[in-house]
Amino acid sequence: MRYIREMLLVMVLVFSCSESSDIAKYEPVSVEVEMPSNFPDMVYNMDNNPITEAGFELGKDLFYEGKLSSNNAIACAFCHEQAFAFTHHGHNLSHGVDGGVGTRNAQPIQNLAYQTSFMWDGAATHLDLQPIIPLTSEVEMNETLSNVISKLEADTDYQDKFARAFEDGEVNTENMLKALSQFMVMMVSSNSKYDKYVRNEDNVTFTALETDGLNTFNNKCATCHATDLFSDQSFRNNGLPINPLLDDKGSYDILENTEDLYKFKVPSLRNVVVTYPYMHDGRFTTLEAVLDFYDNGAIDNGNVDPLLLREDGSYGITLSDYEKESLIAFLNTLTDTEFLEDERFAEF
């Protein structure tokens, strides 16, 4: 009898010990970040925010977390759906909490660690700080940083996840933003047919139409859609007619410099086939409409990029029907199915 009692006591002790060791603690298991050989150098400084398994997982949870918005329903993923390279499927403008409607088309989330600025107007220059914009925007998530943190702090799951992801284990804004960056830094799209073609992988070859498209692209598009990121990361006015309803002045809003009027960031063309609709306000629903615009739709709105000035004084890029057809065939080679279906980034 006494023996059993002692056994029980030992068991209780052992049990309580094992329970205390279950408390979440920092587990810095580092994760290798893909750096494709055909990409320029990474811009994001991972020394300040090393990517770990737990940090990445926390970032993913936060990306799909409705609590980041004031009605607890609008997660980042609401406007950034994986199947569409993390854009808002079919929406020219996106809607946030309480029926708010934004003024610009949701941009894809891919290869952000390689970008020098974010948003259509470059309003964010550090990836860590970018999420503050949608999170606090009234027409998007309409929250405050401190309120989001109190919601996360009240959740024991998140307490554990933050403890595992960060050395100080604190549920705070710094760690929330770092986790989101870790998730986004990992989101690299670099395995399209085009990538495999330029890296000579898997014996991938281009059809004659795709090759012609690539040549036309290099001759007529690649000055702005430069490098294998397909953007020179500059801000340019491409001669879109002004939508008076939105009267979006683009990067002019940042410095209020008239030289920046109607300039928007040159978007990457990766996965462009699935990221429709196009342009900063999503006015074009097809790539054909985009190419037709460059061929004969641009207007002189006062500050059009001189690169688009044609000999006859008009703005645009002259494209024959065949050039358009082949360009679209080429643009189709930029679709990276591995990325669009990568389970590491998927909600479920």
Binding site: N49, A124, H126, I132, E174
Partner: peptide
């Protein structure tokens, strides 16, 4: 300090945000 992003900012981002010392349309 700005180039550090979130690193080393602790709760200052919250404070700045609460005090209206951050632009909401730009970071």
């Amino acid at each position: 300090r700005f180039a550090l992003g979130a690193d080393g900012q602790g709760d200052f981002l919250d404070l700045a945000s609460e005090e209206g010392m951050m632009w909401s349309w730009a970071s």
